[in-house]
């Protein structure tokens, strides 16, 4: 049983300087409930792969299945929620109004929307902030609101493209803890793009190391860490060994240059 199944996925952009191989022969399968991080230097195709899963890009080769469907069909079936690097909240809508936005677009009833908004706000610990406007919230809280928005329509898959990239270290730590708690509670399958090794190791059950030119997977590391992870797990030898392995993988990728 797999949620995301990629075999031989390639994506070539035609540019003025000739073709750019953003992805080449990517094989990967992700099981339900996994937390998968994609890590690699810029240009390695990690974001492109995530966007392909979301049908925001179309692979030029290979097959990609999301919940057994074409990515496009999966999107229409509300298979995933996508969290972008910036919260992208609308300043003219309150936090509740912003979370309500995809629900309105998808045609949920008013009562259903209210119930879902309350539930996901609780999940990201924003209860009581529904009436606030985005500018009244800190960057971290805004990003939590955007995660709530992605969760509101009950997609099984949560795709996150460097969601904490614009936040400071302390806020990131807190959000990472909260995200792990949320993941344990909801059992969602999460695809998470990052360029931080500790972030990838701390969060993931599976770490996909990628390298550029052409964008490809160089190593897939299964985490040996327990699902319950306090922040100080980062000081354990197990954590350090995993981080070392990821770093090796990244270095391997660069050896091809």
């Amino acid at each position: 049983m797999t949620v995301i199944e990629a075999s031989g996925v390639s994506l070539t952009f035609q540019t003025a300087d000739g073709p750019v191989h953003a992805l080449k022969d990517v094989d990967l399968s992700i099981a339900p409930g996994e937390f998968v991080s994609f890590i690699g230097p810029s240009g390695c195709g990690k974001t492109t792969f995530l966007r392909s899963i979301a049908a925001l890009e179309t692979p030029t080769g290979g097959t990609l299945r999301v919940n057994g469907m074409e990515p496009d069909a999966a999107r229409r079936a509300r298979a995933y929620g996508y969290v972008f690097q910036a919260p992208g909240l609308y300043p003219w809508r309150t936090i509740s109004g912003n979370i309500s936005l995809p629900l309105e677009i998808m045609g949920f009833s008013k009562a259903d929307r209210a119930e879902r908004i309350a539930r996901v706000m609780d999940l990201v610990q924003l209860s009581g902030f529904g009436g606030k406007f985005p500018w009244q919230l800190s960057g971290g809280m805004q990003q939590r609101a955007s995660i709530a928005r992605a969760l509101a329509f009950d997609a099984d898959i949560l795709l996150m493209d460097e969601p904490f990239g614009a936040l400071d270290e302390i806020v990131r730590d807190r959000l990472k803890e909260a995200l792990l708690a949320l993941w344990r509670k909801t059992g969602k399958t999460i695809g998470f793009v990052t360029h931080s090794i500790p972030e990838a190791v701390y969060l993931s059950t599976k770490i996909v190391v990628m390298s550029p030119r052409p964008g490809r997977i160089t190593r897939i590391i299964d985490s040996t860490l327990p699902p319950d992870r306090p922040l100080d797990i980062r000081d354990t030898p197990e954590f350090i060994a995993l981080a070392h392995e990821v770093r090796e993988g990244l270095r391997d990728g660069h050896g091809h240059d």
């Binding site: 966007r51 979301a54 925001l56 999107r75 229409r76 509300r78 995933y80 929620g81 996508y82 972008f84 992208g88 936005l101 995809p102 677009i105 998808m106």
Partner: peptide, 8 residues
């Protein structure tokens, strides 16, 4: 893209 991800 956000809008597209919601099939708007």
């Amino acid at each position: 893209d956000q809008m597209r991800s919601w099939s708007a």
